[in-house]
């Protein structure tokens, strides 16, 4: 999260709403460890990453939805091995669990 703080500061200074997605769990093979973080502002601008590029697009949509509905945040999973998983998956075959929340703390 260290590497996205500057972007978050800039967006907040401009009065933009910001959501942060963090990897909390990886099952099987996964490109980024827990703690990998990505920030999305209300205009859809992105800083950081949570995978090798496999799920970023879906995370942006989910983050924008969370900002729009003023949700306190929720868990989102991606991966082939999970029944509830989104259609998007990791090409390496693992499952990635993310927590996405508005930066309102």
């Amino acid at each position: 999260m260290r590497e996205i703080l500057d972007d978050i500061d800039r967006w907040r200074a401009n009065g933009k709403k910001v959501a942060v997605a963090r990897v909390v769990k990886i099952e099987g093979s996964g490109p980024r460890d827990p703690g990998a973080a990505m920030a999305v502002n209300e205009d859809g601008e992105v800083a950081g990453s949570v995978s090798g590029g496999c799920v970023e697009g879906a995370v942006v949509s989910e983050a924008l939805a969370i900002l729009a509905e003023s949700s306190p945040g929720r868990m989102v999973s991606f991966g082939y091995s999970d029944d509830e998983a989104f259609a998007v998956g990791l090409t390496c075959g693992g499952t990635i669990r993310l927590f996405i929340e508005p930066l309102a703390w």
């Binding site: 999260m1 500061d9 909390v24 945040g73 929720r74 868990m75 927590f99 929340e101 508005p102 703390w105």
Partner: peptide, 29 residues
């Protein structure tokens, strides 16, 4: 100063810090 701003300043100052977040159950976030 919000908790986030305090956290941000600590991380920038390289002060060891651990952040716990409720991700499921009551009081998510």
């Amino acid at each position: 100063m919000s908790l986030y701003e305090r956290f941000r300043d600590l991380v920038r100052a390289e002060t060891p810090v651990a952040l716990a977040t409720v991700i499921d159950g009551p009081n998510v976030g």
